[in-house]
Amino acid sequence: MVNQALEHAEALCRERGLRLTEQRKTVLRLLCAANKPMSAYELLECMRTVVKNPAPPTVYRALDFLLEQGLAHKLESLHAYIGCTHPDHPHASQFLICDGCGEVTEVEDASVAASLQAAGQALGFQAKRPIVEVLGTCAQCCAKQNRD
């Protein structure tokens, strides 16, 4: 799954005339391989096992590139990043974030995005990043709570 995401990212960058440098690729690989969202400093710690003396600006520059290209998302409520599950097209994402186990599921529901856009337009508001983060409990954690 990680290799497939990296291959897809490389192809998208090639199509766009951009370079997916080794450092950018390393950050994306770490995000895609993680079983949870990662902060910039968690990424920096993980990079130390792969890259000699990585500096925080290196990670932040790579994250900025990945965000700009739609290859990653920033979860504001967690101050963390995840790889995008479908970076091949621009989209307004919704994230279901379990506060029990930390699992994050990316959802792309056009009706949610349209509803938010209509509500914003009615108020004369122009959204820059129409991203929704929903905190709650995933099905597994709900089942576990019901058993306990």
Rank of each mutant, 00 (worst) to 15 (best):
N146C: 03
T49S: 13
L78K: 03
Q69M: 09
V112K: 12
F65A: 04
V27W: 02
M47V: 00
E68K: 13
I131W: 11
P130T: 04
H86E: 15
V27C: 05
P87Y: 07
F125R: 06
S39E: 06
G70L: 05
A114D: 15
C98S: 13
Q69F: 04
Y41E: 07
L75S: 01
E7K: 06
Q69W: 06
Q121P: 00
V59I: 06
H86L: 11
N35F: 10
G120M: 05
T21S: 04
S77Y: 01
L43Q: 01
T85W: 15
K52I: 02
A127V: 10
L44A: 07
Q4W: 13
E133C: 10
V134T: 15
L96P: 00
H86A: 14
R16T: 07
C138M: 06
V104H: 01
C141I: 04
Q126T: 14
L31N: 04
A92T: 06
L43A: 01
H79S: 14
R61Y: 03
R147L: 13
A80E: 04
A114W: 14
V59F: 01
V132I: 14
C13K: 10
N146I: 06
V59S: 03
Q94V: 05
A127T: 06
Q145F: 11
L71A: 03
A11T: 03
T49F: 10
F125T: 04
H89W: 13
A72K: 11
P37K: 02
P90K: 09
K128D: 14
C138S: 09
E15W: 10
E22F: 12
Q4T: 13
D88H: 11
E15Q: 15
A5Q: 12
L116Q: 13
Q140G: 10
L30R: 04
E108M: 13
R29L: 02
G70F: 05
T137I: 15
L75A: 00
C13H: 14
R147I: 09
E106C: 08
T49E: 12
M38D: 00
D99I: 09
E133I: 06
F95E: 11
P130C: 05
K25Y: 00
E42D: 09
M38H: 00
E103D: 11
L135E: 15
A5Y: 11
E68V: 04
G120A: 06
R24M: 08
K144N: 07
C98N: 02
K128G: 14
E15T: 12
C46G: 10
Q121L: 14
P54T: 01
D64M: 05
G83W: 12
K74E: 15
A11V: 05
R24D: 04
C13M: 12
L43R: 03
Q23P: 00
C32R: 09
L71Y: 00
N35E: 14
N3M: 08
Y41T: 05
S111C: 03
A122G: 13
D99V: 12
L71P: 01
G70K: 08
I131K: 13
P130D: 03
N53I: 02
V112W: 11
R147G: 02
P57F: 03
H89V: 10
M38C: 09
A114Q: 15
C138L: 05
L66F: 02
C101E: 04
L75W: 03
F65Q: 01
H79G: 08
N35K: 13
T137E: 08
L123A: 10
S39L: 02
C84Q: 10
V51F: 06
L63T: 03
A55P: 00
M47H: 03
Q121T: 09
E68Q: 14
R48Y: 01
S115M: 12
S93Y: 08
A92V: 02
